[in-house]
Amino acid sequence: MDTTVWIILAVAVLVVVVVGLVLARRSRRGAGEVGPGDAQTGGEIPAFPPSTGEPADPGAIDGVVITHPHGAIQKPENVASRLVRLRARLARSGALGQALLAVLGRDHLDEAAWEELEETLLQADLGIDPTTRILTELRTRIRVDGTKDPAQVRSILRELLLAEVDPTMDRTLHTQRHVLGGSAEDPDSVVYFPATFLMVGVNGTGKTTTAGKLARLLVAEDKTVLLGAADTFRAAAADQLQTWGERVGVDVVRSDREGADPASVAHDAVLRGARDGVDVVIVDTAGRLQNKSGLMDELGKITRVVTKRAPVAESLLVLDATTGQNGLRQARVFAEVAQLTGIVLTKLDGSAKGGIVVAVQRELGIPVKLVGLGEGPDDLAPFDPETFVDALLG
């Protein structure tokens, strides 16, 4: 066979391969595959088949890399155990409680003592109005009851602080999957959409780390989780999130190029979660500065894209507990854009600034749902009002 015939055969084989790849790609797109530009154009999210809970093809979404965990997977600490440990840690750091009890333990509370109490509560970022309410009621109760017993005064103060923290607020993390369609007669036709969590907040609050810790917390509660690295402006953020995924054994959806559209990555992560049948998708967003209108608009875009099929289950604002009133200003701006459902307070290692819990809840009417009390992977736990107040008072 001469050289010309070999060349013709080689060209024919190449054409067959190229045509086959093109047809396969069109078939995948027709079945609901999403390209990197779909979320940017604001088009409708394509339909996808009912979730079976089986992992989808890692290459099913264009422009997105699905990183799978490998190596040794760490077993997260269960919720009950971490609550006991964190309660002890918070109690040991009760600087506010020590200051309050030093005053309340005196035989007589004169005006200087009351001024000292006021200063202590204000320095703890409790806020002017809550501080005024607490001290006014405390003085009234002491006068009416005629008590000078420090233990009784402490008990009254505990009651008043607990009322300010408001134990009646719903602090549940809503992890139930959203039912999109189908019928009871045909269970196989039911399509589930994962509960989507958006993590928002400014740089430096520990937002990406909190997203990883939250994934561990949910896995410890037997939830299946997928992480979405929508902070595409900082390559280290996606790498950091991937490391958390490897620790706990969950996949991470991230862009294959720096500076990709965050809304597109968030959209693809949620779609991937629906296809894989996971319970919760946690989307980490870039640190938005409240005075950067463009970045805040981007966060609004992420929210709009993600909610095309189902509402966001949780929009959690991550706040640094040590930032005080500046944290309140951040919260106000984010509440306007992200429709916040809860707050995560990080760096609450010392409870001297614990009054921010009261201040931010009163300001926004949004509950603190989680607190971080350390740098360890399991140093994140649900917020419990009674435990917190007891720790404040030592």
Rank of each mutant, 00 (worst) to 15 (best):
V202K: 01
A215P: 02
I128H: 11
R82P: 01
G71A: 04
V13K: 15
P76Q: 07
L289P: 03
R254N: 05
S189Q: 10
V280S: 00
L271F: 00
R133F: 07
G287C: 03
I66C: 06
L96T: 04
L138C: 07
D379H: 07
G181D: 11
D107E: 15
I134W: 01
G273N: 03
G37R: 14
A112E: 15
L317E: 09
E246V: 00
R26W: 01
L101A: 05
S81H: 08
M1L: 10
L83D: 07
G294S: 14
D297K: 13
L340D: 00
Q361V: 08
G372A: 10
K347P: 11
A211N: 01
Q123N: 15
A238H: 02
T136G: 11
S255F: 03
L121K: 11
T323L: 10
N291D: 09
R257G: 07
R247G: 06
L380G: 02
Q152P: 03
G273F: 01
P69Y: 04
H174S: 11
E314D: 12
R362M: 09
T243N: 09
L316M: 13
V318N: 01
Q176K: 13
D125F: 01
G212K: 03
V103S: 08
E258R: 14
Q152L: 15
E363W: 13
L160H: 10
D276K: 05
P167A: 09
G355L: 04
G245N: 09
L162E: 07
L138K: 03
D110Y: 12
S189H: 09
L9P: 06
A229G: 11
L217N: 05
V305L: 06
V22N: 02
D129F: 06
G59N: 11
A237E: 00
A151Q: 15
T3W: 13
I128A: 13
V64G: 02
D384R: 13
G201C: 06
A24Q: 12
D279Q: 09
V11L: 14
M169T: 08
V371Y: 01
L86F: 02
H178Y: 13
D231Q: 08
D107P: 01
T52D: 10
Q176E: 15
R362Y: 04
T208I: 05
E258W: 08
E185T: 12
D268C: 12
V283Q: 01
L226W: 03
I7Y: 12
L9E: 13
T224C: 08
L122T: 08
